[in-house]
Design a protein around this nucleic acid. Structure first.
Lengths: 138, 138
DNA sequence: TAATTTTTGCAACAATGCTGCAAAAGTAAC
DNA sequence: GTTACTTTTGCAGCATTGTTGCAAAAATTA
């Protein structure tokens, strides 16, 4: 397990540091998206809150992690399956449980194929499309 | 115009107050989603920030307004076309321009029909599905 | 107009996002 | 391994935002 952490960091051209390895370990061991708070609670050591904050940003910039926002303000982070900077993996579907707050990443999707896990029920969904409007596209 | 503000408030069972009428006026005159800050800047008078905050929440609770979050933390508010509490209008597609930050509401959608306005280009989209997971569904 | 309910403004606090800077740790070259 | 250089971390600290409680003001109802 420790080996793949090292590998992941190396592949993404990030130096290996205790905090990064620790955080990555937490994210690897979870199949769902975690809030900053949830990640902190699972870390082996207490790092400065700014460090955790910056590390998450580093991971995102490196394409190692992606984020979702549910309920207006709850930001959750999850390991990207593949390097989202390189390939066409530019769409994400996430399932958010309104009761327990759990967010699971459903991976890539096309607007015409919604993959809902069995026994999950959909109340509503929201599509956020990022791109350029007509004015900025000119 | 003032008449439709009054109407909207009445239909949603909300008392008419200067702040509400003012804010509703701003939202009606815009076809896109606005941040709390943008709304404040367009108001005729300066209301307490808590009042604006609470009024937005009141509007959302009443189904008069809905919200989108882009770029992790930017929350934007837009007038709902119909009362989203009553009918099946439980899905929203929003277009977010990464350059100017503009968010336009594309209205209701099904995952298999993505309606992108002409000359808009998509970089990526995100689908947030709210509902119940298997565990909470039991 | 009076009585009752609702809304607003203010004070205040917690949590979060973020920056600059110096210390510590990591990396590379010898 | 030691040295020199680069990167990361921790800390102090500030701005913004989300939120609550309460009393004053406004709106609604009778």
């Amino acid at each position: 397990m420790s080996k793949s952490i090292k590998e992941l960091l190396r592949v993404h051209k990030l130096n290996k540091t205790p905090c990064r390895a620790d955080m990555l370990g937490v994210l690897i061991e979870t199949d769902r998206a975690l809030s900053e708070q949830e990640i902190k609670e699972q870390l082996a050591y207490d790092y400065d809150r700014v460090t955790v904050f910056r590390t998450l940003r580093t991971f995102i910039d490196a394409g190692l992690v992606h984020h979702v926002t549910v309920n207006m303000h709850e930001v959750k982070y999850a390991l990207s399956k593949r390097d989202s900077r390189q390939n066409g993996d530019n769409a994400h579907a996430h399932f958010h449980c309104e009761t327990c707050g759990q967010v699971v990443c459903l991976g890539s999707f096309s607007p015409d194929e919604a993959v809902i896990p069995e026994h999950f029920s959909v109340k509503d969904y929201e599509l956020i499309i990022n791109g350029l409007c007509a004015k900025c596209n000119a």
